[in-house]
Design a protein around this nucleic acid. Sequence first.
DNA 1: ACATTCAATGAACGTTTATTCAATGTTGTT
DNA 2: AACAACATTGAATAAACGTTCATTGAATGT
Lengths: 191, 191
Amino acid sequence: MTIREDQKEKRRQEILFEGLNLFIQKGYSGTTIKDIANAVGMSVGLMFHYFASKEELYLALVSQGIEGPMNSLQPMGLEPMKFFEMTAERILNYIKTQPFIAKMFLLMHQAHFSADVPASVKELLSGFDIYSPTAEIIHLGQKNGTIRQGDPLALSIAFWSAIQGVAETLALHSDMPCPESAWITDILQAK
Amino acid sequence: MTIREDQKEKRRQEILFEGLNLFIQKGYSGTTIKDIANAVGMSVGLMFHYFASKEELYLALVSQGIEGPMNSLQPMGLEPMKFFEMTAERILNYIKTQPFIAKMFLLMHQAHFSADVPASVKELLSGFDIYSPTAEIIHLGQKNGTIRQGDPLALSIAFWSAIQGVAETLALHSDMPCPESAWITDILQAK
DNA sequence: ACATTCAATGAACGTTTATTCAATGTTGTT
DNA sequence: AACAACATTGAATAAACGTTCATTGAATGT
């Protein structure tokens, strides 16, 4: 009941871990089942004992991303500018201390922006928009006087682009120095 | 001597244009010769009359990127902060007015960061580092008092990440609003 | 001890992909 | 008008890829 099932779950996690690494480095099409199998150290055939298809493996990662780190970005009645300071701080901390979660951000970005993902992934991500909710919080901060004037959606794009770009650089080159979160939140800061 | 050669050059440019579009949307492996041939409106076999291989086509684009927009980012004795203001302004203008050049930035980023590109491309790009020269200019600005304190390389990463992320969002979704360059240069600005 | 379930492999299959090539139409040159 | 050079096609090829499957060996439950 449990011994084998625990082993199976561990093995699944190994596959997800190596899959995540390879998918963010080489993209969906650029990553082969063979690549992943080699990284885990198993035969290609055995991969299909744990995941029915390459698409399902990728889908499992994206689902984990939706339920995990992305969902924990709730403003929770915070003062708008504080929300962005906390968010930036939190994500940069992930990058330094929890590479897996940082890489999850990259996968979500890839799944959202690349046309090189299965249709099922696009479906799962439809209606998953990070810019609009952020733009609303920015709008509050503008009425507040804590966030600078300008198109809230454009400010939202600038903020998340910087976060995403830093995450990408750092997750792929762990030797590079990490920017401070205050530099990035200054994109939004009213003077 | 010229009539046919001109036609051939035009056709080559068509292929490069559609190739650029597809490569930045779907990556190197995710883009097939058939995709490009369909987009241009020619047979798959004919593609090989214009480019010897998919690799050479991609390589031609990256070469164009190296000689073109990337090379025109010279400080030219400008005051450091002015250099970044001009650079950000220039690139955001490209995004709005010259989509092809904007997309070239994305391709260079992809070629630099993705493991899903031929080895020949990596060779061509080896020793092509945008961060180090930028970090030097930042260092000057710090002694100057115009750029905030902090690791110059980390500041460089933050600046280029924001630029790159905005370029990606805008080049792929032309309906989205464009951030102002001053928001991004405020990443560097001393208070 | 035995039967059953599961983990694991490697070969086989059909498809897709990049690439080649022989054949055919088209265009510029003389 | 005729010829040579080029443009274009569609079929052929070989490798790589995702996926299936029969088979083997080990672990589990009875």
